[in-house]
């Protein structure tokens, strides 16, 4: 369970271009559900996602993860939590160019110092699972959009996180690939993982896979729709 209490995020605080992206937001996210942040562009979805995923710290307010307050932890611990709890799929995938597919997938586990054969096996297993088994040694620049996204998902899952975080995952995909993505999400849900997605794609918002939807506008929450509980 992730709990946000009175979260605000102010960019460029104290400067003339100060901007308040999140206004005193409070909400709870079930750690084993599929949650969607939706809303128009600029409404603060990505900002909220980076706060939830410990990529950034809120300007004020508190964030609790399984009852533990994490918003004030020093960077070291935050990195640790981020690594073990969250896997990220960025909007632009952010695969590292020049490295092979499998190297990219193994990357988040490098600081853990696992035995090499074990880590490689795990990465290869994930890639095989998402149909990229024949491209392990390919450079990532040569992947198509859908392949790059699946590679990014594999990379996000390499440390076996409890929650997958994906920012606008289907922004560049056609409907077929979008449905494929939703199938992957469903599969993860079946493995007991939680997924947090931002999107303003109706195909996603209308999907039955989404269990909770959080609507945003101008850094505020608009309404809450729970589909199952």
């Amino acid at each position: 369970m992730i709990r946000l209490e009175q979260i605000s995020k102010v960019f460029n605080q104290g400067r003339p271009n100060e901007f308040r992206a999140i206004h005193g937001l409070s909400l709870g996210i079930a750690a084993d559900r599929v949650t969607l942040f939706t809303g128009p562009s600029g409404s603060g979805k990505t900002t909220l996602l980076s706060l939830v995923g410990c990529l950034a710290r809120p300007t004020s307010g508190r964030i609790y993860l399984k009852g533990r307050m994490i918003s004030a932890l020093p960077e070291r611990f935050l990195t640790d939590i981020r690594r073990s709890t969250f896997g990220f799929v960025f909007q632009r995938f952010n695969l590292i160019k020049g490295l092979s597919l499998i190297e990219n997938v193994m990357l988040p586990a490098y600081p853990l110092g696992l035995p090499f054969p074990e880590l490689r096996e795990r990465a290869a297993g994930l890639l095989h699972g998402l149909g990229l088994g024949s491209k392990l040694e390919n450079r990532v620049e040569w992947l198509s959009g859908g392949e790059a996204q699946r590679a990014a998902i594999c990379r996000a899952l390499i440390n076996d996180p409890a929650i997958l975080i994906a920012d606008e995952p289907t922004a560049n995909l056609d409907s077929a690939l979008t449905r494929e993505f939703l199938a992957i999400v469903e599969g993860l849900r079946g493995q007991g993982k939680g997924v947090i997605i931002t999107s303003h794609d109706p195909l996603i918002a209308e999907s039955a896979v989404m269990e909770a939807v959080i609507r945003m506008r101008d850094g505020r929450r608009v309404e809450r729709m729970a589909m199952e509980d």
Binding site: F116, P117, E118, L119, R120, E121, R122, A123, A124, G125, H128, L136
Partner: peptide, 14 residues
């Protein structure tokens, strides 16, 4: 499926 452990791949590791 011994993907990670083959001698060739270990040697190829930078």
């Amino acid at each position: 499926m011994v993907i990670g452990g083959s001698i060739r791949e270990r040697v190829a590791r930078p």
